[in-house]
Amino acid sequence: MQFPQIRMQSQMALIGINTTQGQQTIEQPKAQLSIQQPKADVQIDRRPPKLDIDQSQAWSDMGLYGPIEAAERNAQEGKQAWLQSLAKESQEGDQLMKIENGGNAIASIGKNNAYEPMKEFNVGWIPSHFAVKTSYEPGEINIRVQRNEPIINAQTQSPIINYQRGDIEIYLRQQNELQIDVEI
């Protein structure tokens, strides 16, 4: 005897998934920055040095005088020469006045006036030691500097963030099925 047979055939349901990726972009704008550096304040106080050179003694030692001193010296020397000449002429007059005493006064006076006296020669333009006097007063410099801080202005920028959501789609790709057959 034959028994009826049941045949079952099944098919599983299948699902499908479609995904769309999410997208994210981030941009960071640069910060706005401004920097200013004010100049430093500088003050300089200065007293210049002073150098005094007095060479009047050296010029005087070399026979070079200023106009006032030269006039005074020439006047003094002229007066002295006039007095010496006056004394000499007075002495010669006295000798001539006493000519009767003998002694040949005219020949003696002529002999004295015939020859000029020997002149002395010496180097006269060398000044004496320490004839040039100097004095020096050093100068002074005072520098004051006041530095100024930089002025910095920074403005930050927030990041720009764009986000696009992803998506998931779930669907039935294959329908489930059950088939039952009876065979005799």
Rank of each mutant, 00 (worst) to 15 (best):
150 P>A: 12
122 N>F: 09
120 E>I: 10
128 S>P: 13
129 H>W: 14
156 T>M: 12
130 F>P: 00
149 E>S: 13
155 Q>E: 11
131 A>Q: 05
142 N>H: 07
143 I>K: 01
140 E>T: 02
155 Q>C: 00
142 N>I: 07
156 T>H: 03
120 E>D: 12
156 T>P: 04
145 V>S: 05
121 F>D: 04
127 P>S: 15
145 V>H: 00
134 T>C: 03
154 A>P: 00
132 V>G: 07
137 E>H: 02
146 Q>W: 06
140 E>H: 05
152 I>M: 06
146 Q>P: 00
125 W>S: 07
138 P>H: 06
139 G>Y: 01
155 Q>T: 14
137 E>F: 01
121 F>Y: 10
123 V>Q: 10
138 P>C: 07
156 T>D: 12
148 N>R: 13
138 P>K: 10
138 P>D: 05
133 K>R: 15
142 N>P: 03
124 G>R: 14
136 Y>N: 05
155 Q>Y: 02
125 W>D: 03
126 I>R: 10
143 I>V: 11
130 F>H: 08
120 E>G: 02
131 A>N: 06
154 A>Y: 11
148 N>H: 12
127 P>E: 06
146 Q>S: 10
151 I>T: 06
136 Y>D: 08
149 E>T: 06
138 P>Q: 09
147 R>H: 08
151 I>R: 11
136 Y>E: 02
120 E>F: 08
121 F>T: 11
141 I>F: 02
127 P>N: 12
123 V>R: 02
146 Q>K: 15
131 A>W: 11
135 S>I: 04
148 N>A: 12
137 E>Q: 15
132 V>F: 03
126 I>L: 15
145 V>P: 02
148 N>F: 03
154 A>G: 02
151 I>F: 01
145 V>M: 10
138 P>G: 08
145 V>C: 02
124 G>E: 09
135 S>T: 15
140 E>V: 06
139 G>C: 04
132 V>T: 14
128 S>T: 12
125 W>C: 02
135 S>W: 03
153 N>T: 15
127 P>A: 14
134 T>E: 09
130 F>A: 15
137 E>K: 14
132 V>L: 11
122 N>L: 07
152 I>E: 05
131 A>R: 04
147 R>P: 07
150 P>N: 04
146 Q>V: 15
146 Q>A: 11
146 Q>M: 01
120 E>C: 00
152 I>L: 14
134 T>I: 06
121 F>N: 08
131 A>L: 04
126 I>K: 07
142 N>M: 05
128 S>F: 03
126 I>Q: 14
127 P>L: 12
128 S>E: 13
139 G>I: 07
155 Q>A: 12
153 N>G: 01
133 K>G: 02
120 E>L: 06
121 F>S: 05
138 P>N: 08
125 W>Q: 09
143 I>Q: 01
127 P>F: 08
138 P>S: 11
133 K>W: 05
152 I>A: 03
155 Q>K: 15
144 R>W: 00
148 N>E: 10
135 S>G: 04
143 I>F: 01
131 A>D: 03
145 V>E: 09
121 F>E: 06
155 Q>D: 10
127 P>K: 05
144 R>T: 11
122 N>W: 07
126 I>S: 06
148 N>L: 05
125 W>V: 15
150 P>F: 05
121 F>G: 04
